[in-house]
Design a protein around this nucleic acid. Structure first.
Lengths: 132, 132
DNA sequence: GATTACTCAGTCAGGTCGTCTGAGTCTGAG
DNA sequence: CTCAGACTCAGACGACCTGACTGAGTAATC
């Protein structure tokens, strides 16, 4: 988390979810999406969350028009990756490989999961070979 | 995290690490391990951390002797798994499979990693077949 | 009997997080 | 022009968490 991996709060995440879903959105749109009602204070809450997300460079704000338009600067995939890295740092000495090993050997996966995983490994392997 | 998956603090984790390393330990032993000095207040800090860990059922305390002897009730592997589950819940709709897919396809792994992963998948597959 | 180590309960400051308020700005309708 | 409504921006707030610390009481040891 420390290494330029700011923590994303649950409420902040909810905002990001909307941005992932809608690509671009105003505070109003996000507020209505999250709260239905969209009162003044709820609007302000979303505003503050966006402000913090912007400070963490996780969303971009376009000030060229009013109301401002926001978009996510980070994908869900990157966020997942960053959280996994946090876990690896905290519990696996920073090794993503250990984490992966742990996840694979520990989890319960059915036939379909294993099949998909196998395909994924194949793809990974061939991609790696091509690089070298 | 909510589902009987209490959050483990960094300081609490440091205590757990010692317990994993030493199996059983007194507060004194843990304090000396973590702080070298082992002053009164540091001792009390460790004590409080153990108290909280005990409340979370992550360590067991034997009161039959004084000083009390502590041991971990959760392995590093289980803790990793629980954190991964947190990530899955927060970002993958609770699906560990999605998380796994993300981890495999997103991470940078070298030839050795891929080889090990492949073996792991084999093992997982045969284990699964045996079960059915 | 005093010292030392330990347990147990409680406190405390600093930080984070979600929420909310208020002051000021801009714009469009009447 | 003026007013109302929507928006931005800065700040504050209480609740909570976390690590650190204190003090009172108890048991053991010399």
């Amino acid at each position: 988390m420390s290494k330029s991996r700011p923590h994303v709060t649950e409420a902040e995440l909810a905002v990001l979810e909307v941005l992932w879903e809608q690509d671009r959105a105003t505070i109003r749109a996000i507020t209505d999406r999250l709260y239905e009602a969209g009162s003044t204070s709820e609007y302000a809450t979303v505003q503050k969350l966006l402000e913090r997300l912007e400070a963490k460079k996780l969303v971009a704000r376009s000030r060229s028009s009013v109301p401002h338009v926001f978009r996510a600067r980070v994908s869900r995939e990157r966020l997942i990756d960053s959280r996994l890295r946090d876990v690896a740092d905290a519990l696996c000495g920073g090794s993503m490989t250990s984490l992966l090993t742990q996840l694979v050997s520990g989890g319960k996966f059915d036939a379909e999961d294993v099949l998909r995983l196998r395909e994924l490994v194949e793809k990974l392997d061939s991609r790696r070979e091509k690089r070298s």
